[in-house]
């Protein structure tokens, strides 16, 4: 089926065009154009907005706002976002990163969505249609979402306060076996006061490891201190089986990699 592209200079006009049936928003196109090339017949019109606000990055004080059209390469190269750059660099190879957007990553099905895993640990806010909702809530309801995400924002973690790991079979690039992001806050005594852990490839989309987060609080980041969290790391996960790994394998190695991530100093 022929594909048509509609380009609008404003988000509002593009949003109005998306109300028609058979339309889909075009970010960088690494998934949308790929789907069209593959013969996906669920859409015949791609809609994009060229509003420069979509490709803006603002790091003001302790808060970062990244436009939905910002590419992984732009995130990785921005000096104000150095703390989280490794999560952007984890997405695909160089050409994919020059094209793949933050907005598109929010919609990527497993085994993709590595940057969104980071957004979960950062407790990011997703901005769309003048409103703002937590990324966790956004992900839960994304299948019914028909609008345009304009930006994501989050409090910048302190230097070294953001942990991220991606496990893949093909090095240096390769699809995830799983990815994990964590933001852990400790008191002066080294006891965890709060923790957020995002998991990729442990369900059909990125999810939080709520049970492990809870089990960390009050403990230290030592082998003994994290044992309880590792024991419940798989709670609530439904890992997929795909060409990269089986559900069983993902479940087996999750605690191993979570341990490495939490004990890394």
């Amino acid at each position: 089926m022929p594909l048509t592209l509609q380009t609008f200079s404003t988000i509002a006009d593009a949003g109005a065009a998306l109300k028609a049936s058979g339309t889909r928003y075009l970010g960088g196109g690494t998934l949308a154009v790929r789907a069209a090339n593959e013969g996906d017949l669920s859409f015949s019109t791609l809609v994009r907005a060229t509003d420069p606000a979509l490709s803006a990055i603002a790091v003001e004080g302790a808060r970062a706002t990244i436009g939905a059209g910002v590419t992984m390469a732009a995130v990785a190269a921005h000096p104000g976002l150095a703390v989280i750059a490794r999560a952007a660099r984890a997405v695909g190879g160089p050409a994919v990163r020059n094209q793949a957007t933050v907005g598109g990553n929010l919609f990527a099905a497993s085994p993709y969505g590595d940057f969104t895993v980071a957004l979960l640990a950062l407790d990011a806010t997703v901005h769309a249609g003048g409103g703002a909702i937590p990324v966790e809530e956004f992900l839960a309801g994304r299948d019914g979402f028909t609008g345009i995400v304009t930006a994501v924002s989050f409090a910048m973690p302190r230097d070294g306060g953001f942990r991220f790991l991606k496990v893949s079979r093909v090095k240096p690039k390769g699809v995830s076996v799983l990815s994990i992001a964590a933001v852990v806050e400790e008191d002066g005594d080294g006891r965890v006061t709060a923790a957020r852990i995002g998991l990729g490839c442990m369900a059909d989309r990125p999810i939080r490891a709520k049970a492990a987060e809870k089990a960390l609080v009050g403990n230290r980041l030592t082998a003994d201190g994290i044992a309880a969290a590792l024991a419940v790391a798989g709670e609530g996960t439904v890992p997929p089986t795909d060409a990269v790994a089986s559900a069983w394998y993902r479940a087996e190695v999750l605690p191993v990699h979570l341990k490495r991530l939490l004990l890394a100093r």
Binding site: L5, T7, L26, G28, G29, T30, V33, R34, N37, L46, R48, A95, V96, N98, Q99
Partner: peptide
């Protein structure tokens, strides 16, 4: 860039 995933109009 990957020309197979880039629409010419863009």
């Amino acid at each position: 860039r990957l020309s197979c995933l880039t629409l010419a109009e863009t």
